[in-house]
């Protein structure tokens, strides 16, 4: 676990020096939200319709921006044989996975921290229940990154990895997207944390199950 944290720290330090991925992810999610608010201009102006599309738009933004970051999570290690170096580290392979997951989650939190206020402004949408919303976003992001990091490692050595990652990832994160969107919708329309317990439970189950499975099978991916 500790060595996992070291790997996460290494990734984040590297990211903070260039801010290459973070900037592109933030700008990208900003663009997606702008496009949504242009495309749904009429709907956004009527306050009861906006709550029908806003949660979906928010999560689509997260997932698009997230896939961008995930595709670089392991691909960035291909340069200068960094992946080989990582494999040579005297740590369990699954520690590499944990490190990558932590770094990915932190990166996505940054993006979401910027995206949510912009979303609130451009969709002309006051956000109540910030705490419940935070819980849902955190759980949804963990689930998304847990699976995404595994698949990022899986596709890193394939020919068409940029295309393949979203194709593999999206069907697998259906169980994250649906409860997240449902719960976000309920929270944004004034529901409390008690109203979304069912969704939260499902998200927790997903996070735990997939983290354990990914942790167990990860060593098979980086084998050589």
């Amino acid at each position: 676990m500790i060595s996992g944290l070291h790997i996460a720290a290494k990734d984040l330090r590297e990211e903070m020096r260039t801010k290459q991925m973070l900037n592109s992810m933030i700008v990208f999610s900003l663009l997606v939200i702008v496009i949504f608010s242009i495309a749904f201009e009429d709907i956004i102006s009527s306050s009861n319709m906006v709550s029908m599309i806003a949660p979906g738009a928010l999560w689509i933004t997260f997932i698009f921006a997230g896939s961008l970051g995930l595709s670089r999570s392991f691909a960035a290690e291909l340069e200068n044989g960094c992946l080989e170096g990582l494999k040579l580290c005297p740590v369990e392979r699954s520690e590499i996975y944990i490190g990558k997951v932590i770094a990915g989650i932190v990166l996505m939190f940054f993006v979401e921290l910027v995206t949510v206020p912009i979303f609130s402004v451009l969709f002309n949408y006051p956000i109540d229940g910030l705490f419940s919303l935070m819980v849902i976003i955190v759980l949804g992001t963990i689930g998304f990154v847990v699976v995404g990091t595994l698949l990022s490692a899986l596709t890193v050595n394939t020919r068409t990895r940029e295309v393949l990652l979203p194709v593999l990832l999206l069907p697998l994160v259906i169980p994250v997207i649906i409860p997240s969107v449902l719960a976000t919708a309920r929270v944004l329309t004034g529901g409390g944390i008690v109203d979304v317990l069912q969704e939260i439970r499902l998200l927790v189950v997903y996070d735990v199950v997939f983290f354990i499975v990914a942790y167990l099978v990860f060593e098979h991916i980086l084998q050589d």
Partner: peptide, 18 residues
């Protein structure tokens, strides 16, 4: 094989979420 395992596990969860 890894994807076969992970994919199979996502299906019951999809069912529950849907």
């Amino acid at each position: 094989a890894v994807f076969g395992i992970v994919g199979f596990l996502s299906v019951p969860l999809s069912f529950l979420s849907i």
